[in-house]
Design a protein around this nucleic acid. Structure first.
Length: 423
RNA sequence: CGGGGCGUCGUAUACCGGUAGUACGCUUGCUUUGGGAGCAAGAUGACCCAGUUCGAUUCUGGGCGCCCCGACCA
């Protein structure tokens, strides 16, 4: 893509109402636009990056579930059924068009902050027999939560992207088997995103659903809002709510000896057991023809939050540094042509050649001075920058800068393609 | 939801109870071209509603919005 056709601009300064590094850089580089507190629009670069993150997640989820897309809106009746209408603080309510003029307070619809209430009836309709189980549905969509305090850019929003997976089982053992499988899938996702080494399974309270634990995936990051108690040797962590005397005894862990570190929750998985199948009276028929309650699990990952975390973790003083797997483009082709037709032609043919080879290239074809182009390139954070200039034409080699390390190589076109193929 | 802070061109900032200034960005022209160029000429601004006042962007009150700390976060 030509940068002149991106239809976004970079900014030298971040808006003063953004303090979080991820929001400052993503806005300055033109990835996102702030609509209101905790609500952002995704611009071309942001959408591509978000898409990459979601594709990585989708690839793993397809191995353990079927993708669907559920409604954002639900009637409040559905939420009453599991008794959560008034219990869930983050529920956002809305009104039907015919009620707008009445300005009623008792809005009739809700924007779903999670989808147990929606998915359970779908499963009920489609998975009535032991022969249908186990099964799992997942979706990636925009979620709405009435966050009391949206903050930290993409890390905690009122509207955000979420992948939520729901699994259905004939008994607890089958649920737990699947639960372990889901854990492995999550691990694969975080590995692929380049944060595997810093992401720890963290024991958390089971909430309403279970007397046991649920599991969070916490990524170490300075700006994280959670404090976790990390046992590096055993590759496991405990969250604040779990660190009690009672649990210390139960788990045989001395919490005082653990490392306290800041982290951000990138995923969580819950054994729901029969909470929702009871509420919706979702039973399956077993081999003996007897109705049995279905066991459920739910599993979430926040792609938009992950995008923020990747910025927080990898950015430097010049701007964003994307892991190669999620960068909106692999190569930032910067021409310093101005009026030099030879340079322009060379940039065009390099763009064509790399693109044809399946490499995603953002070509900065804008008629600007070198300094501004380099500064923008640093800010945007594409992994490899290739400079096409009069100097390069003379030398027959192009300057290739690795954004993360800052190292510069001078390569011929063939060498460049070779090095990119290794990625 | 409790506490604190802040609302001035698109962005960042300044000043002021009496014609609102600067930088970046934007428009036009010329020059410049390997790390955010220069000159010249333009366009664009006081969150909303009351009150005080001859006069309010400035002071007071209310509302709304945003940020931060805390509580909350299935």
């Amino acid at each position: 893509m030509r940068q002149s056709q991106l239809f976004t601009k970079t900014r030298r300064e971040a808006p003063k109402d953004e303090v979080a590094k991820n929001a400052q850089l993503l806005i300055r580089a033109g990835y996102i636009h702030k609509e209101m507190a905790g609500v952002y629009s995704y611009l071309p670069l942001g959408l591509r990056t978000l898409g990459k993150i979601e594709a990585i997640i989708r690839k793993e989820m397809d191995k353990i579930g079927r993708e669907i897309l559920m409604s954002s809106l639900a009637s409040q009746e559905v939420w009453k059924q599991a008794g959560r209408l008034d219990k869930v603080d983050s529920l956002m309510r809305t009104v039907g068009a015919n009620e707008l003029s009445l300005a009623k307070n008792d809005a009739s619809y809700v924007l779903n902050p999670t989808h147990e209430e929606i998915v359970t009836p779908i499963a009920q309709e489609n998975l009535p027999s032991y022969k249908d189980l186990p099964a799992a549905y997942y979706q990636i969509q925009t979620k709405f939560r009435n966050e009391a305090r949206a903050k930290s850019g993409l890390l905690r929003g009122r509207e955000f992207r979420m992948k939520d997976l729901y699994s259905f089982h004939r008994d607890e053992k089958d649920l737990l088997d699947y639960y372990e499988k889901a854990k492995m899938s999550y691990k694969a996702v975080f590995d692929a995103l380049g944060i595997g080494a810093d992401t720890f399974i963290t024991l958390a309270s089971g909430g309403d659903f279970t007397t046991g634990f649920s599991h969070e995936f916490q990524t170490l990051v300075e700006s994280g809002e959670d404090m976790i108690y990390l046992d590096r040797a055993n590759n496991i962590a405990y969250n604040k709510e779990v660190v009690t005397e009672e649990n210390a005894k139960k788990l045989g862990v001395d919490f005082d000896k653990l490392e306290q570190v800041k982290a951000c929750e990138v995923g969580n998985i819950f054994p729901l057991n029969t909470k929702f199948s009871k509420a919706f009276n979702y039973t399956y028929i077993d081999e003996a023809g007897v109705q049995q309650l279905v066991y459920m699990g739910c599993y979430g990952i926040g792609p938009s939050r992950l995008m923020g975390i990747l910025v927080e973790k990898f950015a430097d003083e010049k701007g964003i540094v994307w892991p190669k797997e999620v960068a909106p483009f692999q190569v930032h082709l910067v021409d310093l042509a101005n009026d030099n037709e030879d340079v322009k032609r060379t940039a065009q043919s390099m763009y064509d050649e790399l693109t044809k080879a399946g490499i995603e290239v953002l070509w900065d074809d804008r008629d600007l001075r070198a300094g501004e182009k380099f500064a923008d390139s640093d800010l945007i954070g594409i992994p490899t920058r290739v400079v096409v200039s009069a100097k390069a034409l003379e030398a027959g080699k192009f300057e290739c800068v690795d954004r993360a390390s800052g190292t510069t190589d001078h390569l011929t076109t063939a060498e460049l393609r070779e090095s990119l193929n290794h990625v």
